[in-house]
């Protein structure tokens, strides 16, 4: 049984049109779909690489761009030195190359301005990627939904999308950025230099005019477990918390 057009493969070829280094370890890849690609903020794609002998590797990547950004989709991929797929993107993939993608995927870790708020977003490292899509969607739609992002990174230079996030914060239109740097001193007055904990969650929620209606938490498994527990300890009902775990 099939919902889609039976003959069409769920995989499509996308062409890399631009590559932009975001931080020392994270690079954005901008992809042009060959077929219409409609998605929601928070969703991910599956990427499939095929070797000449037919061997395939497949991984999931969240979409960083907002649906409003037009046809191009942005993936922001962190390099894991001993990984299989992320070093391929960092070391080999070039503008003009084609890769196979499937998606958009995931119907739970998604948000649209019509879902309302306030929204509490908690990201660790590349876990900020799907949250960025939500923040960009809010900005593009000039939504008034209050949003606080607590973003944990090791150091200031590893804060992915840093300039853009600070820009959004400086608009003072209901978006607040709180950085938690784990291996460096905080630079902005509102920031922390420690790992995420319940007290930080409580204080960050005070930046919202009302308790959050949804909390989205994304990152490595260890990060998500710790951050979700911190939210629960700060009084956020477990039923409001949605998580996306990168598995490892």
């Amino acid at each position: 049984m099939s919902d889609g057009p039976a003959a069409q493969s769920p995989w499509q070829t996308m062409t890399i049109s631009r590559i932009e280094k975001r931080t020392p370890r994270v690079t954005s890849f901008f992809l042009e779909p060959s077929r219409p690609f409609a998605y929601r903020a928070g969703q991910h794609v599956d990427v499939r690489l095929t070797a000449p002998d037919g061997y395939q590797a497949r991984r999931s990547y969240s979409i960083a761009s907002a649906p409003e950004a037009g046809e191009t989709i942005e993936l922001a991929i962190e390099r894991l030195d001993d990984g299989e797929v992320s070093p391929f993107f960092h070391d080999i993939a070039a503008v003009g190359d084609e890769v196979e993608l499937r998606g958009p995927l995931g119907g739970h870790f998604v948000w649209s301005d019509s879902d309302g708020g306030p929204l509490l977003l908690v990201g660790g490292g590349s876990g900020v990627v799907p949250l960025m899509a939500m923040i960009r969607l809010r900005a593009a739609r000039r939504s008034a939904v209050p949003v606080a992002l607590v973003f944990s990174a090791r150091v200031w230079d590893e804060v992915i999308f840093r300039d853009e996030l600070i820009d959004f914060h400086d608009r003072r239109d209901g978006f607040d950025l709180v950085l938690a740097l784990t291996r460096e001193a905080a630079r902005r007055p509102a920031d922390y230099s420690r790992r995420i904990d319940a007290a930080m969650m409580e204080q960050s929620m005070l930046r919202l005019p009302a308790p959050p209606r949804f909390a989205f938490v994304c990152g490595s498994n260890a990060f998500v477990s710790a951050a979700a527990q911190a939210l629960i300890d700060a009084g956020v009902p477990a039923g409001l918390i949605r998580t996306e775990r990168y598995g490892v």
């Binding site: 497949r58 979700a228 527990q229």
Partner: peptide, 18 residues
């Protein structure tokens, strides 16, 4: 098809761990 061999045991779930 489409799978790869993993030595660890990744964790995935939709919400906090009860």
């Amino acid at each position: 098809p489409g799978q790869y061999l993993e030595q660890g045991f990744p964790v995935l779930s939709a919400g906090p761990t009860p």
